[in-house]
Design a protein around this nucleic acid. Structure first.
Lengths: 226, 226
DNA sequence: CGGGCACTTGAGCTTTGTCAACACTCGTGG
DNA sequence: CCACGAGTGTTGACAAAGCTCAAGTGCCCG
């Protein structure tokens, strides 16, 4: 199987530290150039032409859209190694913003398409990326049907897996982003974190640093009963 | 643009009556055979190999999965003209069941793949189907972030559009299916319908037949404020 | 030291879920 | 033809979850 590159954070095993830089090894990297963004900078906007694709080298990205009523929905968090900006339609459905100081590799979409047309390996890879993305969005739809503690537990386990810091994770995003990702209010997120800490499932030295104390109890919350 | 075929009910304009048979004109149809299922029959199960794709000729289909905790999630309703069963992975993420008496055209997935490899038009079509599906799931994630009346209003407008009966629709599915699709309980669905009828937005001659009386008020509910 | 920002906590309220009873429809069998 | 029962839908009373508004804490950075 070709290089470890995930589109917008699949739940597949990865194997890099979040703070470490992602290796430059995929087909995108060879065609792309390095670019940096500062905290909260917009990388592209909703409805802009989707003519470039990006790969996170260091930092984190959120993809989001604001609705007519003002609510904001975060579609995904992208961590080092993740691809984003790849769309099937010609316009971006979500905008993308830097959650932290950010370094990405940018490549022209057209270069990718040409690559895929000539090289069936790249085409397969493209296809599998879309498959991962579809799967991810389906899982998110599942997430949104759960209770608040279930959503938070699922989120923490996902982040623990993707940040690869073992059971000790440094969340790059503020509470408001987590709330908008999980479809909750910031207060409910905060209270649920506190509740998990009281229940000894996690420990919070600071609000951004979470240590998973009881993996099993989070698992039980995220999946099965209780 | 080639034949009017939608994957699992896009929000693109279609143009057939739900009760009428869908025309047999796509690439799938030429390769496929007609098959019938009776009400509640399983067409394929979760985790079964995804080696066939289907097109609804008459009737309706629900795709669903049951979670460890017993809750059921409906991923989509498929109406005449809709494709379903096409997966990027090799196994079905959702099972598919006949909501009503059902007629479908079935084709081997492998035949489709071969077609796509030799004919770039078919490949584009396949690509655009996945794009539609991705878009649809993203919209469903939006849906699940709304309040109950907003979800119901959105659902009714979507069905009104897809069933093409103007403002008079005959829902093929029971309340429980609607509830599991919208992430609500059957009671909340029922009460919300009643509420909309009291508010004169809709009229319900029978529980399955819904007449949209005030399109604008449903629109306001589904999108913007109020 | 002071201001701003992110986060937490509390009190009250709204929405939705739960449990239970009841109504309607339709097909079957007495 | 009617009675019955199963499946489906509605309604009510209450409980629980999550949201809103408001205040308060802690921290970082000037």
């Amino acid at each position: 199987m070709p290089p470890q590159t995930t589109l917008t954070g699949s739940s597949k095993p990865r194997g890099k530290l979040a703070d470490a830089d992602a290796p430059i090894d995929g087909p995108i990297d060879n065609l792309g150039t390095l670019k940096t963004f500062s905290r909260s900078a917009e990388i592209y906007g909703q409805n802009e032409p989707a003519d470039r694709i990006y790969k996170v080298i260091s930092g984190a990205v959120r993809t989001c859209r604001v609705l007519v009523n003002g609510r904001r929905q975060i579609g995904a968090f992208c961590l080092p190694g993740d691809l984003f900006g790849l769309e099937v339609r010609d316009e971006h459905t979500f905008s993308a913003e830097a959650v932290t100081e950010l370094r990405v590799v940018v490549a022209k979409r057209s270069a990718l398409i040409v690559l895929a047309e000539n090289d069936s390996g790249s085409a397969d890879q493209l296809w599998s990326l879309i498959g991962q993305e579809l799967f991810r969005v389906q899982e998110q739809a599942l997430l949104l049907g759960m209770t608040a503690p279930e959503r938070i537990a699922t989120f923490l386990l996902e982040m623990a897996d993707r940040l690869q810091g073992g059971d000790c994770l440094e969340l790059p995003m503020p509470r408001q982003d987590i709330a908008d990702y999980l479809g909750l209010t910031i207060e409910t997120v905060s209270r649920t974190f506190t509740g998990l800490e009281r229940g000894l499932a996690i420990q919070m030295p600071t609000s951004r640093r979470i240590i998973i104390r009881n993996h099993a109890s989070l698992d039980r919350l995220a999946h099965g009963r209780r």
